[in-house]
Design a protein around this nucleic acid. Structure first.
Length: 417
RNA sequence: GUGGGUAUAGUUCAGGUGGCUAGAAUGCCAGAUUGUGGCUCUGGAGGUCGUGGGUUCAAGUCCCACUACUCACCCCA
């Protein structure tokens, strides 16, 4: 037997309705906020991610699905959604379309990692991108989309953490201060943090080792080093969130793992789905568009893991939508009547009523069982009598009651119920 | 890349110190005096016990290796 590649998942026929449920909510909600869908390729030139995501990140260093195609081009399966959108924005001259440009996507993303609960090699992200505004209102606009989605599906337990990591100017200042602090304490820290000291000292703040946490607690904080502009931006974001009644925690230790972030960073974290609790992560990335070859354009957005979102819904026993089954099952009493049943089903379908009939030649009893198990609302049994008289009974499966109706009015009657 | 755990029907799992013709529940299919599901009862199909070696008269059970899955670190959605 050939089995599924490590870290991937099938969405089976009896569970795909859950995906439709969240996707439908996403499409309604983004429309409500004025975002339009953008679809970019599943793979891009590797170069895009090197420049866009950043060469020092783990994603680029060790997690990309990169291969050479038959034309000797280096191709990479998208490890995140933002870089492709930035590329498309530049390549298609979207900066000349009415601004701001508000986009969203639902896409698979690929990272070569060791799978565990809530972490896959292929997962799906819903992402939102807002280009062309440096206003704190844009940050909040994006956060609001995520927040509204969680509200809509009934999730109240997610905690919103926000932080500001400043712009290149103030971050340079901060990095200096942080490094000099850490140098004095590095001996007591874990090996990975020692390594990070030179490469990416910001990440040290995110370490979960107890001894490192203790050091980090007293480390200089980014927000104390923000320049006036970044500081004002951060304060305004908080003020707007406050006035909208969106609760948050300022967490000086959140640092996103992608190089392109500036100013605002945020994440929505769950405690109910295991160690991989970040359901949604995002922030502002004012340097990205320039980085991939466009003119400097402020941008803000987030990525949300759909698998993780579903995990949260199920762990909290919240609705994940309803099984998708046609409305009516038409049951021929015997094999002689299959043709009649099939015609009735065809008519119902033409009238826009979803319907199904027996195509494997089962007994009436077996058909009833099938209809009951799959959750049909109505069953119509077709026998010689019914055909002769042109009158059938609509059985309501949840009530167990039967109502007679003229065969020619069947579709109308069902639509009415 | 580094640790820990687990591998027996479609699924969830039983099978102390080696002796089975490998079980249960659930699901699937069929039936319970031939026109009706959910409850109940009966029957049936379905496993080379992850793979390969080894010990033994005898291995699902003990030993070794491999593989897969899984959880955690790392990192992230």
């Amino acid at each position: 037997m050939i089995n599924i590649p490590k870290g991937t998942k099938d969405v089976l026929p009896y569970e795909s309705y859950k995906w439709h449920y969240v996707e439908n909510i996403i499409r309604d909600l983004t429309k409500n906020f004025g975002f339009s869908e953008i679809r970019t390729p599943t793979f891009e030139h590797t170069e895009l991610f090197l420049r866009g995501v950043g060469e020092t990140t783990d994603i680029v260093n060790k997690e990309m699905y990169t291969f050479e195609d038959k034309g000797k081009r280096s191709i990479t399966l998208k490890p995140e959604g933002t870089a492709g959108v930035a590329r498309s924005y530049v390549e298609n001259g979207l900066s000349e379309a009415p601004q701001p440009m508000k986009m969203y996507y639902i896409t698979p993303v690929f990272r070569y990692e060791r799978p565990q609960a809530g972490r896959l090699r292929e997962h799906h992200q819903f992402g939102v991108e807002l280009y062309g505004s440096d206003s704190p209102y844009a940050d909040v606009e994006v956060i609001s989309v995520a927040k509204s989605l969680f509200d809509k599906v009934g999730i109240t337990e997610l905690e919103l953490n926000i932080n500001s990591i400043g712009c290149p100017v103030c971050r340079a200042e901060y990095n200096k201060a942080l490094k000099s602090y850490l140098k004095d304490h590095i001996d007591g820290m874990c090996p990975t943090c020692k390594e990070r000291l030179d490469k990416n000292p910001l990440r040290i703040l995110d370490c979960k080792e107890e001894k490192c946490k203790a050091v980090n607690a007293k480390a200089p904080r980014v927000i104390d080093y923000l320049c006036d502009d970044c500081k004002a931006h951060h304060e305004t974001v908080k003020n707007i969130l406050d006035s909208l009644g969106i609760k948050y925690t300022v967490n000086p230790n959140i640092v996103r793992g992608l190089d392109y972030y500036t100013k605002t960073v945020f994440e929505f974290v769950s405690t109910s789905i295991g160690a991989q609790g970040t359901v949604c992560g995002g922030g502002r990335y004012n340097n990205l568009v320039k980085e991939v070859g466009g003119k400097p354009t402020p941008a803000v957005g987030f990525g949300m893991g759909i698998e993780r979102l579903l995990m949260v819904l199920e762990s909290l026993n919240l609705s994940v939508g309803e099984v998708e089954v046609p409305t009516v099952y038409v049951a021929p009493l015997s094999q002689d009547l299959i043709m009649d049943a099939y015609k009735i089903v065809a008519d119902l379908r033409k009238e826009g009523v979803s319907a199904e009939t027996d195509i494997i030649g089962r007994s009436l009893k077996a058909q009833m069982k099938y209809a009951g198990k799959r959750g049909y609302k109505f069953v119509v049994v077709i026998g010689d009598e019914e055909i002769k008289n042109g009158v059938v009974k609509i059985k309501d499966m949840s009530q167990g009651t039967e109502d007679p109706v003229q065969l020619i009015n069947l579709a109308k009657e069902i639509a009415r119920k």
